[in-house]
Computed example of a mutant assay.
Amino acid sequence: MPLPLIAPMLATPGTLPPAAQDARWAYETKQDGQRVVVYLAGDGSAGLRARSGEDITAAYPELAALGGALGATPAVLDGEILALDAEGRANFQLLQSRMGLAHAPGRAARQAAKVPVHLVLFDVMHLGRDSLLPWPYARRRARLEELGLAGPFWSTPAAIVGHGRQALAATLEHGMEGLVCKRLDSVYEPGVRSRAWIKIRNMRSEDVIVGGWLPGKGRLSGLPGALLVGQRAAGRLRYVGGVGTGWSEPERALLAELLAAAASEVCPFDPVPRVPGARWVVPRLVGEVRYSTRTRAGMLRQPSWLRLRPDLTPEEAAADIPDDAV
């Protein structure tokens, strides 16, 4: 009996449920990895499909052994593939060296020896001959834990019922990406971005120095489409990324005026970043941005503009880029 193809259920960005409803929700750590649906056919094989539906089985050969974990019982499982750093935390930059190798099994095997992955499982949508999609989350989760899926490259981390505020604080304290809140009575909705699942991303904020910009297109013609920002490292201004979201229309217009007044032919970043179409400015504007994490090269991931900091000079802007990110 062939297994049904099931698109993963998606979470909606939001905030913690009201305190009065806390006991109706479960809380799971939000992982910084690649979402995957796992197909165990019951014949010893394991298939992996990305959120897009692409077959990525060959990219992760170390997960092949999961195929025998349930014996002859077929199953469809939901999870996330992670690459862990030396401190045991998910590191998306490490994972990128493993992604995109589904059609290059030789390279995938070599990379697996260098950067092994770990699969965390958090839901079961089909088991044996039965669809578990109509089951409430609490019942599906209990059934998943009964399966005892723990191995050298996979595990089933626990979910916490209630205590959402404490769970969110713990993810922030330990440098985790965030929290996923799941209503205990929620059914599994394939491919749906549901309010029954809420994701909360732990975002950091820092001061940055504006060193350039990229012109907007279409209705944003003549206005900044993105700001090119940097931070000080070893006495120089290092480029840390482009920020293209977070402004209101009045703020964008104000930035356009300030950027025009600070126009320069000289790039202030050292080294000069490869940003086609960049326009440089004298690095005197300071702003605050929100972001999720840094790459190993010190770049900001998913930066969003918060505000200008006219109260700060570039010399007073936030601390240097961390040494381990330079």
Rank of each mutant, 00 (worst) to 15 (best):
W280C: 00
A319D: 06
L312K: 08
Y239Q: 09
G106T: 00
R140M: 06
D43F: 14
K30H: 07
Y27A: 04
P224E: 10
A19S: 12
P18R: 14
M1T: 04
L255A: 14
A58M: 09
L149K: 09
L132V: 05
D270V: 09
P152L: 15
L255V: 04
S155K: 12
L184M: 06
P314C: 08
A142K: 05
A46V: 02
D55F: 10
V286H: 02
L228Y: 07
P314E: 10
R107Y: 13
L66P: 00
P2W: 10
Q231K: 03
L16R: 05
G241P: 15
P18S: 14
R165T: 07
L127I: 09
G222R: 12
P271I: 13
A113S: 13
R252T: 05
P314M: 13
A50N: 00
L94K: 00
E316V: 15
R294P: 03
M9H: 14
G162T: 08
T73N: 12
G230N: 09
G287I: 13
L255K: 04
L149W: 11
G67T: 13
E288N: 02
V266T: 05
L5S: 08
G287P: 04
D323W: 15
L16D: 13
Q111V: 08
P215W: 00
P4F: 01
G100A: 01
R143M: 14
A41D: 09
V229Y: 15
R139V: 04
T29C: 11
E288S: 02
L132H: 06
R296S: 11
S52Y: 06
D311I: 11
E87I: 03
R232G: 04
M299R: 11
S155R: 10
Q34P: 00
